[in-house]
Amino acid sequence: MQHDLTLTGHGVRLVPLAPEHAPGLAAFVDDRVWAGMSSPLPVGVAGWEAEVEQARRSPGRIALAVLDAGTGEVRGSTSFYDLDLRVGRVEVGHTFYAPRWWGGATNPACKHLMLRHAFEEWGCVRVALRADTRNTRSVGAITRLGAVPEGVLRSHRLAPDGSRGDTAYFSVLADEWPAVRDGLLARLGGADR
């Protein structure tokens, strides 16, 4: 879906995912980074150009490139999807980062910006996040955000190799957002910048 949403803070800048981000993504995404995704690993710049175009064409998906706010380096990508403002809900996902950014401030920074936008700009009452249960790194990252586990959907995912997987669902509700926000800001070293 074409959009102009840009979010900036905590050293990252989220901008509309575009073809010019394909080379940066192709440079670091490998099997380890792509683990838990339900589509085949894009290969090379051409593969990433096609992946970017598909993300941009997906109805209801607001695909974002994650850039270093200072250098413009592509750190990864993330998306809003399943947005329904009438009901007040959205999901956050399709998230991956270069391994050098794992375990640092990139994910909490992005999630703070996205959750703040969902709750404070769109007026959402629920933001959901999910991950393949086999992807323990992603499940742990979502847990550390302060999202509440809701359960597991069994045999919910189909991996590119044909295996079936379970999906762990989490959410943050509007009345939980202040505590989640404060936890994210504490991880990021203080006040919103």
Rank of each mutant, 00 (worst) to 15 (best):
V43T: 14
W122S: 05
D82T: 05
Y169M: 06
P19W: 07
L17A: 07
A109Q: 01
R116P: 01
G146W: 00
D166C: 06
G93S: 12
R116S: 14
S163N: 11
L153C: 07
H117G: 04
R61S: 06
S171L: 11
V12S: 04
V66R: 03
N107T: 06
D166W: 05
R100T: 14
A191I: 06
R56H: 07
G76V: 02
G103P: 06
S155Q: 15
A109W: 00
R57T: 11
G104C: 02
L184W: 01
V52I: 10
M1F: 11
D31Q: 13
R126E: 07
V139Y: 02
W122F: 06
I142V: 11
G24E: 08
A118T: 06
S163C: 09
D4G: 14
A98W: 00
A65Q: 04
E176R: 01
N135F: 12
A35P: 03
G70W: 02
A168T: 01
L25K: 00
D82N: 09
R61A: 06
I62Q: 02
E121H: 13
A105P: 14
G103M: 08
A141G: 04
L158N: 09
R164D: 12
P99F: 11
Y81M: 13
E49R: 15
P40A: 14
R116Y: 04
H156S: 13
G140T: 05
L173P: 02
R134W: 02
G88L: 08
W122D: 03
H21V: 06
G123S: 03
D84V: 05
S77R: 00
A179K: 13
L17Y: 05
V90K: 02
D182G: 04
S171C: 13
A98I: 02
F96P: 00
S155Y: 11
T78G: 05
R164V: 15
L41S: 05
R137W: 11
G11M: 13
G104N: 02
A26C: 13
V66A: 09
L17D: 01
L64M: 09
G47V: 08
V52Y: 03
S39T: 15
L25E: 00
L14S: 10
E20L: 13
A174P: 00
M1V: 13
A50H: 03
W102N: 04
H156K: 10
Q54I: 10
D132H: 07
R144I: 08
R144T: 11
E20Q: 15
E91G: 05
F96D: 01
A35C: 08
D161A: 05
A179W: 10
P40R: 11
A109I: 01
L184Y: 01
L188P: 02
V12G: 03
R32S: 15
M37H: 15
L7P: 07
V52A: 07
L115I: 01
G60L: 13
P42T: 01
V33R: 11
G44Q: 09
L188D: 02
E20G: 15
L25F: 02
L14P: 06
E51H: 07
F96Q: 00
L113A: 06
G183C: 04
H117D: 05
N135Y: 13
Q54V: 11
S138F: 10
P59S: 13
W101K: 03
E73Q: 15
A141E: 01
A35R: 12
A55T: 03
E51N: 07
A179M: 11
T78Y: 02
R130Q: 10
L17P: 03
R193W: 10
